[in-house]
């Protein structure tokens, strides 16, 4: 187990969970579909369509498996949020630049995510529909300064024009990898393996483990 430390990082596959938050009409579905449906592999689209998507990446020689969880944006499902975003490594919070209200909703989610998951989660605030810039109701400065104030990164995208989406997710992955590394260093070698496995941060390839499923529960 101690071999899972910082030394053997090369043969590792990272598995990250990313939740997608945003009000109904902000275009989050088109955003992820754009991202996962490129011409090289359209089989990324699972049978669950845009609700649950996966993407495999190779970032600086390391394999990353991304699982993107869409959430329902409607107010009446708001209370159910926490069971969706527990254990997630990243969150993409989408608003519509032409809709001030959708930006307010993003602020609410940020508050909740920070409350539930602390600083372990990487936040991306995304202003979508920049192709409709003439109808913009959320100013760039406001959005960016808000993002900075809550420790999130801000991005501008257009799902329609396929702008900024690739960058957004690549950036997010890099940040999640950094966070995973930092977490690992802080924990030291093999000290409390259970916490890491439960959060689903990473899976070590081809390494036989003595205690698989439920192993964490046996310790406490």
């Amino acid at each position: 187990m101690s071999s899972a430390g910082a030394a053997g990082t090369s043969n590792r596959t990272y598995s990250f969970k990313v939740v997608l938050l945003g009000e109904g009409c902000v275009g989050k579905t088109s955003l992820v579909l754009r991202y996962c449906e490129n011409k090289f592999n359209d089989k990324h689209i699972t049978t669950l369509q845009a609700s649950f998507l996966t993407k495999k990446l190779n970032i600086t020689g390391k394999r990353v498996n991304l699982a993107i969880w869409d959430t329902a944006g409607q107010e009446r499902f708001h209370a159910l949020g926490p069971i969706y975003y527990r254990d997630s490594n990243g969150a993409v919070l989408v608003y519509d630049v032409t809709d001030e209200d959708s930006f307010q909703k993003v602020k609410n989610w940020v508050k909740e995510l920070r409350k539930m998951l602390g600083n372990d989660i990487c936040l991306c605030i995304v202003g979508n529909k920049i192709d409709l810039d003439k109808d913009r109701h959320v100013s760039v400065e406001d959005a960016e300064s808000y993002a900075e104030s809550v420790g999130a990164k801000h991005y501008h995208t257009s799902a329609k024009l396929n702008k900024g989406i690739e960058e957004l997710f690549l950036d997010l992955c890099k940040r999640m990898m950094e966070t995973a590394h930092a977490e690992e260093r802080a924990k030291g070698n093999g000290a409390s393996q259970s916490a890491a496995t439960r959060r689903g941060v990473q899976i070590v390839d081809d390494e036989p483990q003595a205690t698989p499923a439920g192993g964490c529960c046996s310790s406490g």
Binding site: S15, F16, L48, I83, R198, G200, A213
Partner: peptide, 27 residues
């Protein structure tokens, strides 16, 4: 009893969605 490996995959997502739907119906 769901396996760790399935937690963030399709199985985990489907279970979470069903639980959300049930909680919504309860409410």
């Amino acid at each position: 009893f769901i396996h760790e490996g399935y937690l963030i995959g399709e199985e985990g997502y489907c279970l979470t969605s069903l639980q959300s739907a049930l909680a919504f119906v309860e409410s």
